[in-house]
Nucleic acid binder design. Structure first.
Length: 898
RNA sequence: GCCAGCUUGGCGGAAUUGGUAGACGCGCUCGACUCAAAAUCGAGUUCUACGGAGUGUGGGUUCGAGUCCCACAGCUGGUACCA
């Protein structure tokens, strides 16, 4: 390296050194070589020795279990302290390792955790692995290696990377969803669901044994279980050989997998039973409004009515949210799959109807939902009677009416529904106005709003839309034509997968009666058999069918071969952290009550940080499971996560989403190697507000690295040997005076504390920079002041602050002997923040014209006098009349003159 | 189409919630140290025809608007015929 450096330098310096070298030129080469070697070293030298002390502190924290927190009843548990449960969304341990998005949320929660500990809380801050998942299985299929091998190797890598960043997790609580001790309890919860039904009167889950006692039949009970088997149209991916939940289907499609509709028998979870509670109990949570809205829309509650139309003695029930517009219903539409279609179709229309049905069945999901396509449909030849006025309306079938929602049939009001309007226009169906918009400038045609008045609706005329809706429902109920009805878009959760790497269902099938049965709890966990070949075979029963020995349970029973989705493990992991090693129960009640109970309102997880991608999947599923457990008194709160914060995505340096193909992925390992863990942590918090999307900048990391080096150099300097030693600038001398540095420090203590509470980390860091800059430019810094800066910086940059503190202690033995993280958060002195003079802005007609410095407690009159006396003011009001003077004490004076 | 959010220097972002727009950092410029460079330290950095003008655009409320109201535009995310 040095050799080529010499040659390069010489060739650029000029050709005169080439050829024979004179003795003095040899000497020159020697000197060049020396400087170049020195330069190489200085370039490699870090501005402070993070590469030495960061691993050292990590080893200490690991060996001493510095961040271990005890449960009630365990030694070291301090019942006097309030609790704080701070949770990260645990990662899927992918082969690619940690990316810079992970440390973003993890640093934020780590700062809050460390801060809360210093504030005297028992902080539960755990980490674990969402380790079931398709990538490990896909890789296993490719290599023939068991998925557990890659999974546990990946976990080791993730653990190494997280420890490298100095996060203060209690590693004794580490869990993995693939761990048999964990699988056992996931299956145990599933059996709870299996053995439960939703009691609609009590509005809670109850054991099905209650129904048995009441004499319900086996079939009746199976129809109400919270975990049940049903045959239905599902999302089947031939590529992956498995079905997918509605919530997931789109995601996999976008990754390039094909997903098609297929009629299969599958395990379902009755999440719809909880639809109302999932909406209502969302309201009081401290979650981002946007996520609440996403969940509300996903659950999709609508209020309306079911109305019965008569068609040759057969009743066709429709669902409508606008019963008020019944007088405007000029035709009906059934979905092509509606069961009454064959019965009502007239012989003349039979051929056309059947052709249409066939065409619809052949269409893919995508074609069917493609909005840009025109409405299609066929007349059945039949007519129904509109119950409000006895009019005959034609019955059509069309694929814009969906089978799965409402009753699969609608009354069409083309005047006041845009879809019906479009359809009626195309097929020349009558359009009758029944609502007059309140805003007269709007046309009544295709007016779908609620701000209107009823017309052409007999005795409902003149009523407002909302009033008419209410009265129409009562009228329908009175006459027996229908009733009020609430509908939800939410569907039951398709819970089975045809994969190997997931929790098997703890279920067996009786080969004689064909019924399913739970296996005894004593047989849990039920693990997958060891198999050589776990490739999906296209058999919708999944790869486990190939394990013939395993399937054989007894002569009478065979095992269920489906496995659970990845969500199963992530549904309740936050609960297992509380009591991860308990082999008697999924958690002990005493422990649950301490960490999750509402003894410290409002209970549950106090802070949950993660990405938005789980807005409707994990966060909905978890809430559902939690509510079932709550109904049985197994958990203390009806909601698991009291406060949720979404971190924003980190984009690549080019402003694009990070991806391998774009080559803009930043690897945390590289950043830690070049700048240290503290720099990475601090930079990710300094980039911008946690919640926002923001681009990466390696230059920005350098800036942060420079800041930490400045903090270091307040106390440290290099001696002749190139060793870092205390500089002597930090001094024990302290005359107790309120120096500018001390003022700045106390402002910083105040601001950093407030900003951590508000999770506004970027502004906290800029304040600490200002404070450091003040200390850098000061002659001397009292050790007490410097240590307090280290205190507030410690949650952000734990390694450098502990290192500086331990080095200071050698020179200042009076400092407490424990680590900073065990010491209380510093208290600022409000007296130091009081300014005795203030700079007051003086405006003339709202424009800044001058500033004056006055006593902080100057009265309004004094301020006004000072303002009027300012020379610039005189200049600007010369020749004008002062109309008004606005005085805001402590801020400004505005003189209005013209 | 519908719903939500965003829009401030060359860049990331601040702004006590209606009261000095541009804190802090990056980048850039100049200077000090050095034979030189790196590192470090110091000064400057919205634009300007030097009057002023400036927070996507146009209007409004107000003594005063980045902040509140109305209209529009552009980006980002979610959603897709849910009657």
């Amino acid at each position: 390296m040095a050799q080529s450096g010499i040659l390069l330098s010489f060739s650029t310096a000029g050709g005169h050194v080439s050829g024979q070298l004179a003795p003095h030129e040899k000497d020159l080469i020697f000197r060049w070589e020396c400087t170049i070697v020195a330069r190489d070293m200085s370039e490699r030298k870090n501005p402070y020795p993070f590469d030495v002390f960061e691993p050292k502190w990590q080893a200490i924290w690991d060996a001493e279990k510095t961040f271990k927190v005890s449960n009630p009843g365990e030694p070291g548990f301090d019942a006097e302290k309030p609790k704080c449960y701070i949770l990260d969304m645990f990662p899927y341990p992918s082969g690619a390792g940690l990316h810079v998005g992970h440390p973003e949320g993890y640093t934020a929660t780590d700062i809050v955790s460390r801060y809360k500990r210093m504030k005297g809380y028992n902080v539960l801050h755990p980490m674990g692995w969402d380790s079931f998942g398709l990538p490990a299985e896909q890789y296993a299929i490719k290599t023939g290696q068991h998925p557990s091998i890659t999974t546990y190797a990946n976990i080791d890598n993730f653990r190494r990377q997280l420890k490298m960043l100095g996060f203060s997790y209690d590693w004794d609580r580490e869990i993995a969803t693939t761990d048999p001790h964990y699988v056992r309890w996931t299956q145990w919860i599933f059996l709870r669901l299996y053995n439960s039904y939703y009691n609609t009167e009590l509005k809670k889950a109850r054991p099905v044994s209650e129904l048995e006692a009441k004499g319900w039949s086996r079939e009746e009970i199976d129809n109400v279980r919270l975990a049940y088997v049903a045959e239905g149209l599902v999302n089947w991916s031939p590529d992956m050989g498995t079905v997918l939940a509605n919530e997931e289907a789109e995601e996999w499609k976008s990754k390039g997998f094909t997903v098609e509709r297929r009629k299969l028998r599958q395990w379902m979870l009755r999440i719809t039973a909880y639809a109302e509670r999932l909406i209502d109990e969302l309201e009081p949570l401290d979650w981002p409004e946007s996520i609440k809205l996403l969940q509300r829309n996903w659950i999709g509650k609508s209020t309306g009515a079911e109305v019965n139309f008569d068609c040759q003695g057969k009743t066709i029930t429709v669902y409508t949210t606008r019963p008020d517009t019944l007088f405007g219903a000029t035709y009906m539409v059934l979905s092509p799959e509606h069961e009454l279609v064959p019965q009502i179709t007239t012989p003349e229309q039979k051929a056309a109807v059947e052709a249409y049905q066939k065409a619809c069945a052949a269409k893919s999901d995508l074609e069917r939902t493609d909005l840009s396509k025109e409405k299609t449909g066929v007349f059945t030849g039949a007519y129904a009677t509109n119950p409000v006025n006895g009019k005959q309306v034609p019955i059509w079938i069309a694929d814009y009416v969906l089978t799965g929602y409402g009753t699969g049939a609608i009354m069409a009001v083309p005047a006041h529904d845009s879809r019906d309007f479009e359809f009626a226009e195309k097929f020349g169906l009558p359009i009758i106005q029944v609502v007059q918009p309140d805003d007269a400038s709007l046309p009544w045609q295709n007016f779908c709003g609620y701000d209107g008045t009823m017309v052409n609706s007999e005795h409902f005329n003149g009523l407002s839309v909302t009033e008419a809706k209410k009265q129409m429902i009562s009228w329908l109920e009175e006459k027996g034509y229908g009733h009020g009805k609430v509908n939800y878009k939410l569907r039951d959760w398709l819970f089975s997968r045809q994969r190997y790497w997931g929790e098997p269902f703890p279920i067996i099938w009786n080969t004689k009666d064909g019924h399913h049965y739970a296996i005894p709890e004593s047989e849990l966990p039920l693990l997958q058999p060891d198999m050589e070949d776990f490739k999906p075979s296209g058999d919708p029963r999944g790869p486990l069918v190939k394990a013939t020995d395993w399937i054989h349970y007894s002569d009478e029973f065979t095992r269920e071969t489906n496995t659970m989705p990845q969500w199963a493990g992530s549904c309740w992991y936050y609960l297992r952290y509380l009591d991860p090693k308990n082999d008697q129960a999924f958690i002990s009640p005493e422990v649950e009550q301490y960490w999750m109970g509402s003894g410290h309102t409002p209970g549950g997880v106090d802070l949950y940080v993660g990405g938005t991608e789980h807005a409707v999947l994990h966060l909905l599923y978890s809430r559902f499971w939690h509510k079932v457990l709550y109904d049985y008194g197994l958990v203390s709160t009806n909601e698991p996560f009291n406060k949720l914060v979404n971190q924003g995505l980190i984009l690549g340096e080019d402003g694009q989403k990070m991806s391998k193909s774009r080559g803009n992925v930043v690897n945390p390992d590289d950043i830690v190697r070049d700048y240290g863990a503290d720099s990475l942590r601090l930079y990710e918090m300094f980039m911008g507000p946690l919640k926002e999307v923001k681009p990466w900048s390696t230059k920005g990391v350098e800036g942060i690295n420079r800041f930490l080096a400045r903090v270091w150099r307040v106390a440290m300097q290099e001696n002749q040997e190139g060793e870092w030693v205390l500089s002597g600038k930090v001094t024990a001398e302290d005359d107790g005076s309120v120096t500018p540095v001390r003022k700045e420090l106390h402002k910083t203590i105040k601001k950093v504390g407030e900003d951590i509470e508000a999770m506004s980390f970027n502004t906290a860091i800029s304040k600490m920079m200002e404070c450091t800059n003040a200390m850098t430019s000061a002659e001397k810094v009292c050790v007490a002041d410097y240590v307090q800066l280290l205190h507030v910086l410690n949650p952000f940059a734990p390694h450098i602050t502990e290192e500086l503190y331990s080095r200071l202690r050698e020179a200042f033995p009076a400092l407490p002997a424990c680590q900073l993280c065990f010491q209380p958060w510093p208290v600022y002195n409000p007296e130091y923040l009081v300014e005795n003079t203030k700079e007051i802005v003086i405006q003339v007609n709202g424009k800044l014209r001058d500033k004056v410095t006055v006593a902080a407690d100057a009265s309004k009159d004094e301020l006004e006098a000072a303002a009027m006396a300012a020379p610039k003011v005189q200049e600007f009001i010369a020749g004008k009349t002062v109309r008004k003077v606005i005085v805001v004490p402590g801020r400004l004076v505005n003189i209005v003159a013209n």
